[in-house]
Write a protein that binds this DNA or RNA. Structure first.
Lengths: 341, 341
DNA sequence: AATTTGCACGCAAACGTTTGCGAAAACGAT
DNA sequence: ATCGTTTTCGCAAACGTTTGCGTGCAAATT
């Protein structure tokens, strides 16, 4: 289990050159003749020279590692974000350290501090919706470039890459209105959830634009949305005197839960009550009827966020411009809202 | 965007001590008095001293980073492996770099080499089922500790953490036999897929133990198993003169595909044809009827693999013992095979 | 011929931390 | 008071790479 890694020193000795010349030749420095450069690079290739990252990082304070902090790694959409990040980072010569906060704010802070310790060049984060106090995040921003993705915040002055949440929700609700639905319920999270607030705003705007009344009794709020919560909230809707004729759930999981409950109540979907979800998870084609849902391009969001982060890393003296980049999503119409006119 | 990190030198100046004394005090070296140690550690805490990882790694050649290479990060089971790895690694003071090979052998080799470059202390890998030539893996083993998990290989002499694949499959097929099924089909992958081969062996052994005939016409093999392949293979089974009365698919995805096809054929599940999957993915409770499946404890496998890898890292001069550690899985019985006797 | 310029290299220092070894002071025994 | 041992610190080197600056040599310019 020996680590017998070739060094600049060994190669310099073999070539009869100085260590600094070998270093410069490998880094295509203009001071080195092309003949010397070729000799050095040929030997480096022959002995499979790999630079010692500790020595390089120690000298240059740059690791080409990006830190990623996500709330929950097993969530499918998150895995698509990560895949986009991994691929784009790889294309640009970066590696990625992934951390999971479990939507725990203390752990999130801990992960951020550990990223600093590990000398990552920048951090990509999808913040926990439990985040109330942003001091720890602001502290990181004094030290490292930070880009938020998916779950963002209006209070954190950094670049954020998200989908067009409000517009996507607007389109989903508009689609329900277009198929004749007039009493559209929503299952959402609290105002502390960035995604939920934006989707709720789109819902409200669509109702307003189409002159549909807003009824608080069909606006259902949960703390931590899940399939089970979708089931339960739909049970509540089923117990109302005046039932909704559509349900817009802000996640696919909750929408699937809603479908399960509707089927238990022998409700015809979408004739009696239509259902729309959000995310286009794998489950959306497995449940029956197949779910109409907003498709979120997770890989594209991840890749875009990497581009912006690396741009910040490469331009450390440029004044921060706090951009919110909205990547477009699209509505995928399936059986749960198939037009019945 | 300044990195103003406290150094040993700055603290030594403030305390009127040498750099080496401060270093030793922080590392609880026995040569340093307890009074001096307390003074140093108090200041380190006050200024939030964080050691420069490059300097430490440069000196000690240890990063406390583990490399992880998986075929496909969006696969749910893989995310549970990764979660187990992340949590156990964190408990033991390690960070994790995650890479995805996309089941591409060239990319897998590339990821392994990059892990070496990044100075990880060890590598955890779920190998691509496309792996035929193990030279690149053997090469890594000369340099770094390696532990395989989930997808293993009999040809690679290293520690492997897997579930009891054959036993689990045996139990699944036995359960089908116990509910009266006599003609059990299998949808599997080629012999190059470690998991498929083990599950197939369990299937064959159960048939043999219960004196059921083996019929090649209901042993269906695909290259890269998926939900769609499950649908297609089940269509083939439906076209047989003598149909099976049960289907054991080696992944949940294929089992769900089988259920979808059976439903299209108006087959009663499980009365006419029962279905068993493997993995206990999220989808297994969303499809109807809910799927009987083998529950794989991904987090436990991940955590166990980390333990063994760190053991190897901590004992570099101990001769390698090539263990295969089998973590127990269990069968979760749901509607797709509910006993009908 | 003397001076200047350009090319192509090498020396040495720096980066932050760890550790071998030596030195000085303190302590205990005689 | 002297000697041997123990305690507790500091000096200096090492780890591999990068880079500022200096040097030698050859060619061009004055």
């Amino acid at each position: 289990m020996k680590k017998s890694i070739p060094t600049l020193k060994a190669m310099a000795e073999q070539l009869g050159l100085s260590i600094s010349t070998v270093s410069r030749a490998l880094n295509n420095h203009p001071d080195i003749s092309s003949e010397t450069r070729k000799r050095v690079q040929a030997l480096a290739s022959e002995v499979n020279y790999i630079p010692n990252i500790f020595a390089k990082g120690f000298r240059a304070h740059k690791t080409n590692i990006l830190g990623v902090v996500v709330p929950n790694i097993t969530h499918y959409f998150t895995t698509t974000l990560i895949r986009g990040i991994l691929e784009e980072a790889s294309l640009r010569g970066y590696r990625v350290i992934v951390s999971e906060s479990n939507n725990d704010v203390v752990k999130q802070t801990e992960m951020l501090n550990t990223m600093i310790q590990f000398g990552v060049d920048g951090v990509l984060m999808s913040i926990s919706k439990m985040t109330r106090d942003i001091d720890s995040i602001l502290k990181v921003m004094h030290t490292l470039p930070l880009v938020l993705l998916d779950k963002a915040s209006n209070k954190i002055p950094c670049t954020q890459v998200v989908i067009n949440e409000e517009e996507a929700a607007y389109n989903a609700v508009e689609h329900l209105i277009n198929i004749g639905k007039k009493r559209i319920a929503i299952i959402k999270e609290t105002q502390f959830s960035y995604n939920s607030e934006k989707r709720f705003a789109g819902y409200l705007r669509a109702l307003k634009d189409y002159n549909l009344p807003i009824d608080e009794k069909i606006i259902l709020t949960v703390e931590d949305i899940s399939l089970t919560q979708g089931e339960q909230m739909t049970n509540i809707l089923m117990s109302l005197k005046e039932k909704p004729d559509a349900i817009f759930a802000i996640t696919d999981g909750a929408a699937i839960g809603a479908i399960k409950t509707l089927k238990k109540h022998k409700v015809k979907i979408p004739e009696d009550i239509a259902v729309v979800g959000f995310s286009n998870s794998l489950n959306s084609t497995i449940i029956e009827p197949q779910l109409t849902t907003v498709d979120q391009p997770g890989q594209k969001i991840g890749a875009t966020a990497v581009k912006y982060l690396i741009q910040e890393i490469d331009n450390p003296n440029v004044e921060l411009i706090n951009k919110t980049i909205e990547v477009r999503s699209n509505l995928i119409i399936r059986d749960s809202t198939l037009s019945i006119k």
